[in-house]
Simulated scan of single mutants.
Amino acid sequence: MSRKFLVVSALVLASALTACGGGDDDKNDEKKKTQAELRAWAAKVCAVDVTARIDEARVALADVGTVIPNEQPATLRTRLAADISRLADADNALADAIDRAGIPAVADGATLRTSVVAELRNAAKGWAGIQAKVESLATDKQNVFADGLRSLNPEIDGLRASAHTALDKLHRGEPGKALAAVPGCAAGKPDALPTAPVTSAPTSAAPGGTPSAGASGAAPSASKSPSASSSASTTPSGPPPSGGTSSSSAPPTGTAATG
């Protein structure tokens, strides 16, 4: 074999190795760029005002689960309506943040963004509808009022499932990893947004028609953001006895998954 052939072969091999090395570098650079874009996107989704709104919704959910002895139906109605309004606000705030953040740098980013935003907005509209129904309930007869509240449970189950589905989509794959990497990012887990208030009331009343307790509620098991942990951790799993009676209603059969 001639010396000239060996030299030419060495040059060809060196060029091939250089080309391979360049390809790897290009792939690494592209990956780093994509990760940087996802981090920037996640930071926009997890804006302080958004996580604060979600924390407020956690407080509202805890309040829905608060039993207040001798609370009048009219007072309970006002309280529940305000709490449900905060849940709608949280859905809308997160939808707005995802919309503003733009398309996440993944293959199906545009579809993901459109789908999640649409589902959260629909959930927010649903909560607004339930709020209106709660506000329209007559409070002069406690048993009728309690039945009206319990009749809303199927709708609440549906909204809970819809919001969970939306957040689960957001939490998958690289976008989910980017969200989870943001400190205190409540949007980073599918169970972060409180979406399962239980609107119910006892059917029994104390002498004179005075309600013996307020609403009962059950919050989904969720990882709490720092500013909300103190309130969410106190959410009861069910109504305690009040005056020797307990609520005859039960929470919806569906449960929110934990992530």
Score class of each variant (00 low, 15 high):
Lys32Glu: 13
Gly209Arg: 12
Asn28Ile: 08
Met1Asp: 12
Ile130Met: 06
Ala19Arg: 08
Gly109Glu: 01
Thr245Ile: 08
Gly109His: 01
Asp49Cys: 11
Ser15Tyr: 10
Leu137Ser: 03
Gly23Asn: 11
Lys169Thr: 14
Gly209Pro: 06
Asp157Phe: 03
Thr111Tyr: 05
Asn153Leu: 13
Ser248Val: 05
Pro190Cys: 12
Pro73Ile: 12
Gly158Leu: 05
Ala219Phe: 03
Ala90Glu: 04
Met1Lys: 11
Lys177Trp: 03
Ser229Gln: 09
Ser216Trp: 06
Asp99Ser: 11
Pro226Arg: 02
Leu17Ala: 14
Ala97His: 05
Pro251Gln: 00
Thr139Lys: 00
Gln72Gly: 07
Gly184Lys: 14
Pro236Gly: 01
Glu71Cys: 07
Lys125Thr: 14
Val48Leu: 10
Ala118Pro: 00
Ser151Ile: 09
Asp91Gln: 14
Ala40Arg: 10
Val8Ala: 15
Ala201His: 12
Glu30Gln: 15
Ala90Met: 08
Trp127Thr: 02
Gly238Ala: 01
Lys125Tyr: 14
Asp63Gln: 12
Ala74Asp: 10
Lys133Ala: 08
Val64Lys: 00
Ala215Glu: 06
Gly208Pro: 06
Thr253Glu: 07
Thr253Phe: 04
Gly21Phe: 09
Val48Arg: 13
Lys4His: 13
Leu193Ile: 09
Gly102Glu: 04
Ala107Tyr: 06
Leu94Arg: 04
Thr18Glu: 14
Arg113Tyr: 02
Arg160Gln: 12
Asn122Lys: 15
Asp147Arg: 13
Arg113Phe: 01
Pro197Ala: 02
Cys20Asn: 09
Pro239Ile: 05
Ser242Leu: 04
Ala192Pro: 01
Ser225Trp: 05
Ala256Tyr: 02
Ser229Tyr: 03
Ser221Asp: 11
Ala219Val: 08
Ala180Glu: 01
Asp83Lys: 10
Ala105Cys: 04
Ile130Tyr: 02
Ala181Glu: 01
Ala14Gly: 12
Arg100Leu: 09
Ala218Arg: 08
His164Glu: 15
Gly158Val: 02
Pro183Arg: 00
His171Pro: 12
Ala128Glu: 13
Arg39Asp: 09
Thr51Asp: 09
Ser231Ala: 14
Thr75Cys: 10
Thr258Tyr: 07
Ala213Leu: 13
Ala10Phe: 04
Ser227Gly: 13
Thr234Asp: 11
Ala178Glu: 02
Asp99Thr: 10
Cys20Ala: 12
Ser247Cys: 13
Cys185Thr: 08
